[in-house]
Amino acid sequence: MPHAQATGARIWYEEAGTGHPILFIHEFGADHREWEDQVRFFSREYRCITYAARGYPPSDVPTDPTLYGQDYAVGDAVAVLRHLGIARAHVVGLSMGGFASILFGLRHPEMATCLVPAGAGSGSPKADQAAFRAACAARGDLLIAQGWPGELAEETGHSPTRIQLKKKDPRGWAAYMERLASHSGPGTGLTMKHFQGERDSIFDWEPELRTMTVPTLLAVGDEDWPCIETNIFLKKVLPNAGLWMAPRTGHAINLEEPAAFNRAVAEFFSTVERGRWTLG
């Protein structure tokens, strides 16, 4: 199987199509397979790359807790692109992957043609941060101890920002739940504790965000309550960003509304590629 060597882990990836590259970065509660609707759509005209984050087989699952965190998340994205000889790509991320895509844009703007952070920002508002970090530490310990099958998966799939998928697309929700139950307990537990639970608040990046000019499309569902405040903040401070909000939609925006998501992102790509998404 194809792997890119990153610091402390081999990162598994797959690709489809030809054209300008798109790198998809998955969320905590999913894996590279969550992007299938996007890969089928965009690979007609683009080179689409998905990969499994460290801790998510078939990528390596390091046992050393110090090999997890936001720095590794960005480093892994860079490692995949460099392994494939890609100098610049559209970077699309959901939730944990959306957070990583913003940090990617701050640290490696020369490698990002544009950014699509979707559903990013849970735990970032200062009023939420302490409780969010404590919950991540506790949930990470549970995942390491008992894994996903059973209570933890059911709780996640029926949470207030994910139940929308079950209501709209029961078949798609069942497939999501099957994938969720297959994840590594230790890998996701360490990711929850040391990436989710120890990452920066996006609000702390305000000075850097105000100078980042990478074209950015922020995407969020209007029922993804933990992320709305952060996305409004990002719209205010990012000088070259637009905000697209999907109505009656929760956290997994690309799974809930694939046609609308693909259309909005495709239009954004087209505008960027024609040189019309500008600061002026």
Rank of each mutant, 00 (worst) to 15 (best):
A9S: 13
I102W: 00
L142Y: 00
G93E: 03
V80T: 00
T7S: 13
E15Y: 03
G75F: 04
M212P: 03
R82P: 11
S159W: 01
R33A: 14
T113F: 10
Q129A: 09
G98N: 04
K193F: 01
I144V: 10
V272W: 08
F269Y: 15
G172Y: 01
N240G: 08
E15Q: 06
A137D: 13
F269W: 15
T113Y: 10
V214H: 08
E256Y: 01
P170A: 00
G172V: 00
G150Q: 03
L142W: 02
G275V: 06
T271E: 13
I86T: 13
N254T: 12
E223Y: 00
D204A: 06
G172R: 07
R33E: 10
A77I: 06
I86L: 14
D169S: 11
L209K: 10
I102V: 09
L106K: 10
F195R: 09
L234S: 12
N262P: 03
S43A: 14
G97T: 05
H108M: 05
R82D: 14
A4L: 11
A127Q: 12
P258C: 02
A266S: 15
A112R: 14
E27A: 12
P170D: 05
L165N: 10
M212N: 13
L279E: 14
A138I: 09
A112N: 15
I144W: 03
L255I: 00
A9K: 03
R88F: 11
F203Y: 15
P149L: 01
G75R: 00
E267T: 12
A181C: 11
